[in-house]
Write a protein that binds this DNA or RNA. Structure first.
Lengths: 203, 203
DNA sequence: TAATGTGAAAGGCTTCACAGCC
DNA sequence: GGCTGTGAAGCCTTTCACATTA
């Protein structure tokens, strides 16, 4: 998030930023930002702040921005389609190496300049492109199975959009994105808020 | 997450589940699950576990499942398209009331059975359908502006897919889903993992 | 006997507050 | 004067461990 915020500041031509300014842009407390950055080293100047371009480079290096990373998307339904066409990946060092789908009707179809490959070729695809991250955009029922196969093929990270909790061996990273749950959380807060309004509590 | 896990168990015909079993399905520690559930009340039976159907009902009631919630999607690009067609919403009590886009070329187009409305009608749409949650699938540059308008129109929750931190008044909920950041987190861990492998640390 | 509900302990994250430095 | 870097304090979350109950 700091990296993204700094990119924005750099584009606006800002040369220097204080912990307060960057914290505001990142949506955190200034002290927290300083503590986070202190884990990377002392890249600020007391009395002045942080040099935007320098800090961007340091954080980028720590994150490994630059070393391109191959991704495979499994499941080319609505979401998989959108992800394949999503423009934000190349800019951040990610390349969609292949699309895979179980449906024979979709196999061979071209999406975002890539041919959709059959699910049976999943392992071959991962090995051929040295894919490090698998994106699961399949129905919930097959997600764990796809995940197991991805991990067995050598993937070290999984981004899961299916609404199930995945089990993976230690050493493999999992990030869960569940749209239904996110909406439910918002709806819950919205409901609580209304309850407060009715009772008449001041905000 | 517990609600989702219980739904799965119910579909499989499981009648009773222990904190250990449900915790496994939800990806948490059994003690944590028991503590969480204790905030709702004592719905378990010592020596036995939890009645799946009962617990599902209690949690559903606490979450407000059943009272349908109207959602507007702003930005009908790849992601907005996918979200509009996403099948998971109706099943969880959400109804996409309208699609809105700033591009005049898209206006009027029919997506997922809904006509795309111009951005100028955003406020009217929110009021007409009593929309409680806004989904932002626009470019980053206009996200804060769209958010401000949604909030002013009376929305109490925002699900943001644009890669910017949104500022909202207290009382309004925000959930951020940033695909680029998620991938970067996975790539970072993947890189650290490789470093460990090179050094030869046992897992 | 088996599993819940829950005080108490442990651990981790966030914030404060200020010394140190430009 | 102003802002960073950081020890210490505070707060919150998670886990343990066991009394309690069907």
């Amino acid at each position: 998030v700091y990296h993204r915020a700094l990119s924005g500041l750099a584009e606006c031509g800002v040369a220097t930023v204080s912990s307060e300014g960057l914290a505001l842009a990142a949506g955190v407390n200034p002290a927290m930002l300083r503590k986070d950055l202190s884990h990377l080293g002392s890249y600020g100047t007391r009395g002045v702040g942080y040099e935007v371009s320098d800090l961007l480079r340091y954080i980028g290096a720590a994150l490994g921005v630059g070393s391109d990373c191959c991704v495979v998307i499994v499941g080319v339904g609505n979401l998989g389609h959108a992800l394949a066409n999503y423009g934000g990946f190349p800019g951040r060092g990610f390349r969609v190496a292949a699309l895979v789908d179980a449906d024979p009707l979709r196999t061979g179809e071209e999406v975002a300049g890539l041919q959709v490959r059959p699910l049976t070729e999943l392992e071959a695809v991962v090995e051929a492109h040295a894919v490090r991250i698998g994106v699961i955009a399949t129905p919930a029922g097959v997600a764990q199975d796809v995940c197991d196969r991805l991990v067995a093929a050598g993937v070290t990270g999984v981004l899961n959009f299916a609404p199930v909790v995945l089990t993976v061996p230690s050493g493999v990273g999992v990030r869960q994105v569940d749209l239904g749950t996110e909406l439910q959380i918002l709806a819950f807060h919205s409901q609580q808020q209304q309850r407060l309004d009715v009772v008449g509590v001041a905000r």
